[in-house]
């Protein structure tokens, strides 16, 4: 038996997908096309005309030490965000999975940060760690640590990593918790009878069985750290001090909109487009063969 909807009017299906198609074309394909096109042109200093330069913007880009530094910054930033948000979320999920009383409230509270807009999350952390009036800064000073992320690049990086991870923990937590609850309780009990301690059960049974979830989240978190942390960086450090927190996405903005170097900015967008494409392929390849234990 074939179970599909049939349309009598052959235009109706096109009409129905038209709005989605339109949105995709106008807001995704058109700008992407523009970026590719612009990446091959060099505008004159007054922005009145532009000259075709082929791949020159790209060669220039890859030889630019600032751009390479931004690559390294992005690598550090996204590894730290992914690692910390996933490990904290996993820890919280394992704990929440054990809680029986009041687990509902506990879970709800852990999910809240996800509802906070990125810019607002950034501002929250900015206020807490403001070098002159921040609460956290004050307490750090009491403990004898002089916090100033406006001058110290490492501290700035720490702060944007914390703010970006904090938001993502909720999301990861939900997936990890669902993953944990999908593991049959009797499997864990069998391991307990077999003599495995809590830690042993975690590393030999739970963690391997969670690996599909972990892998999925790994890709999602890398994409998040690469592309969706703009607001956090913009509100907290604006890429500084110097270029210490200028990740690739932020550099596109800084070079294009602040520096008005549209050719280079477009070329950087194309590079990012390429990275997104790669990550998406990895994810799809993985989803095709999800059960791999």
């Amino acid at each position: 038996m074939e179970n599909r909807v049939t349309f009598n009017n052959r235009w109706l299906p096109f009409l129905l997908i038209a709005p989605q198609l339109l949105v995709t074309l106008v807001f995704f394909f058109w700008p992407a096309g523009q970026a590719v096109w612009q990446s091959m042109y060099l505008p004159d200093p007054f922005g009145l005309s532009s000259e075709y330069v082929g791949a020159e913007n790209f060669w220039f880009l890859f030889e630019d030490p600032y751009y390479r530094a931004s690559f390294a910054t992005t690598a550090i930033f996204s590894s730290l965000v992914t690692l910390s948000s996933m490990s904290v979320a996993l820890f919280l999920a394992v704990m929440a999975d054990r809680v029986i009383k009041g687990s509902g409230a506990y879970r709800t509270l852990l999910i809240w940060p996800y509802a906070v807009a990125p810019a607002i999350a950034g501002v929250l952390w900015l206020f807490m760690f403001n070098p002159s009036i921040g609460v956290a800064t004050y307490w750090l000073k009491v403990l004898g640590y002089d916090w100033n992320h406006v001058l110290n690049g490492t501290e700035a990086m720490g702060l944007v990593v914390a703010a970006a991870s904090w938001k993502q923990i909720s999301y990861n937590f939900l997936f990890f918790l669902a993953g944990l609850q999908a593991i049959p309780k009797s499997v864990i009990e069998a391991a307990a009878i077999d003599g495995a301690s809590f830690a042993k059960r975690f590393w030999t049974i739970v963690f391997p069985l969670l690996s599909p979830t972990t892998f999925f989240l790994l890709v999602v978190n890398i994409v998040y750290a690469f592309f969706e942390t703009f607001a956090v960086i913009h509100t907290i450090t604006a890429g500084g001090p110097r270029q210490d927190t200028t990740i690739l996405v932020y550099k596109v903005f800084a070079d294009g909109f602040v520096g008005q170097d549209l050719g280079s900015s477009a070329a950087q967008s194309v590079v990012l487009l390429f990275i997104v494409g790669l990550l998406t392929i990895v994810q799809f390849k993985f989803i095709e063969r999800r059960v791999h234990y």
């Binding site: 499997v187 009878i193 069985l209």
Partner: peptide
């Protein structure tokens, strides 16, 4: 005593094998 200290083995309805 903890389950493993009781020197017993259990067979579950859904077998509870380690799937991986």
């Amino acid at each position: 005593l903890e389950p493993h200290e009781r020197d017993i083995a259990m067979v579950f309805q859904n077998y509870a094998l380690y799937p991986h």
